[in-house]
Simulated assay, not measured.
Amino acid sequence: MIRFAPLLASFSNYLRRVRGLEPKTREGVLLGGRRFLDGSAITIPAKTSRRAEHVLAAIEHRLSLSATSATRTASISHIRTFLRFLCWAGHDEQDLARVFPRTPHWRLAHLPPRLAWDDVRRAIDAIVNRRAKLTP
């Protein structure tokens, strides 16, 4: 990781001066960039031959390590910020942040682990009542 120290210092400076991030937020984004570099150093070749498929493979690996949709969303956001920085600073000729989709994250999308029978019964009754009102 020492070989990336100057790049990460420049990234930290970018996050502070250009993006205006607060120290705690900057730490998280910087950690995301560091983890991306650490996990993709072997996968992603030098700037001249770096391509979208290399970045996608590295991101897929990073996502496989994330347990929840919230951590996956944060990881992708941090990597995207780092890739934008690489383009902005002239380390990359193309903005590779644009090649991968955002991860969907829906805040209340999960069902509770168990539903009480009364709740299930009320839901069924509501559907039946709704259908009865709609049927002429």
Rank of each mutant, 00 (worst) to 15 (best):
S49N: 08
L30S: 00
V29W: 01
P136I: 14
A89C: 02
T73P: 00
I79A: 01
R130C: 06
G28Q: 03
L37R: 05
P23D: 06
M1Q: 12
W117G: 00
R114G: 01
L108S: 11
T103V: 15
H54D: 13
H78S: 08
A46N: 12
N13A: 09
A52R: 14
I2A: 14
R62M: 15
S10W: 05
R50K: 08
R84F: 02
S12I: 02
R107Q: 14
A97L: 08
L86Q: 01
W117E: 03
R34D: 03
Y14P: 01
L65N: 01
R72H: 03
H61M: 07
R114H: 11
R131M: 09
R50S: 13
T68D: 06
A9E: 14
W88I: 06
I127S: 08
K47V: 11
Q94F: 07
R3D: 06
R19A: 04
P45T: 15
N13W: 11
A9Q: 11
R98E: 09
A109C: 02
P23L: 06
W106K: 15
E93G: 06
R62D: 02
S10H: 10
T135A: 10
R17K: 08
M1N: 12
R62H: 15
K24R: 15
I42V: 15
R17M: 09
M1F: 13
P104N: 11
I124L: 10
V29T: 11
R98K: 10
S66E: 13
L31Q: 03
L37T: 07
A52S: 14
D92L: 12
T135Y: 10
R131V: 15
Q94T: 14
Q94P: 00
E22G: 08
D119V: 09
A41C: 11
A123N: 02
S40W: 05
T81F: 06
I44K: 00
W88V: 06
R16E: 11
R35Q: 06
R16L: 09
A70S: 14
Q94D: 04
H78F: 03
V55H: 02
T73M: 10
W88S: 07
